[in-house]
């Protein structure tokens, strides 16, 4: 008897097979139609979205990095440009200054020369005047000494000769 009942454990039951097949097919259909579709679809779309978001973020990051490096490059260039301009400005300023200085020096030189010439001329004039004065004085003195010995013209010549013989300075 024991064996008879135990046998029922391993004997497939027709009714159960029948109902089970129907039930499982309905179960499968319901889940297929209303369950797994939305679930797996939603999960997949979410995964895709996450993936695309990550990709977008990576792309944005790469772009940002590129922009940053571009910016850096541009800034460096700008800096270099600024430096160049500054240097040029400095150079031109230096040039200008030098030019100005040269001009000034020239002017000073010129003025000096002019002044010197003036002085020379003045000196010459003064000397001439002095010479004339001295000659006159000498003549007057001599005439007083040697009255009537010499006419005025001859005495003047003598004195002049004497003065010329004097050292120039």
């Amino acid at each position: 008897m024991t064996e008879v009942i135990a046998q029922s454990l391993v004997q497939p039951d027709v009714g159960l097979i029948f109902w089970k097949s129907i039930a499982f097919l309905i179960f499968l259909f319901l889940l297929y139609r209303y369950g797994w579709g939305p679930i797996t679809e939603a999960m997949e779309s979410r995964e895709e979205e996450i993936e695309s978001s990550i990709q977008r973020a990576e792309e944005a990051l790469a772009e940002a990095k590129e922009i940053q490096s571009e910016n850096k490059k541009a800034r460096r260039e700008a800096e270099r440009e600024a430096q160049r301009i500054l240097r040029e400005a400095r150079e031109s300023a230096e040039e200008l200054r030098e030019e100005e200085m040269a001009k000034t020096r020239d002017r000073i030189q010129q003025m000096q020369e002019q002044a010197q010439a003036e002085i020379e001329r003045e000196k010459q004039a003064a000397l001439q005047e002095l010479r004339d004065e001295v000659a006159d004085l000498a003549i007057e003195a001599a005439s007083k000494v040697v009255q009537d010995d010499l006419d005025g013209e001859r005495q003047r010549k003598l004195v002049n000769d004497f003065i010329d013989d004097l050292p120039k300075n």
């Binding site: 009714g15 089970k20 369950g35 679930i39």
Partner: peptide
């Protein structure tokens, strides 16, 4: 053919019902 409802069928249906309830709600 004995197409009677058996306890294992009931438990099977119960399991299916629970799974259906969970996943149809989740869907």
């Amino acid at each position: 053919a004995d197409l009677s409802i058996t306890r294992h069928l009931i438990f099977g249906l119960l399991a299916m019902g629970i799974v259906l309830a969970i996943f149809l709600v989740l869907a």
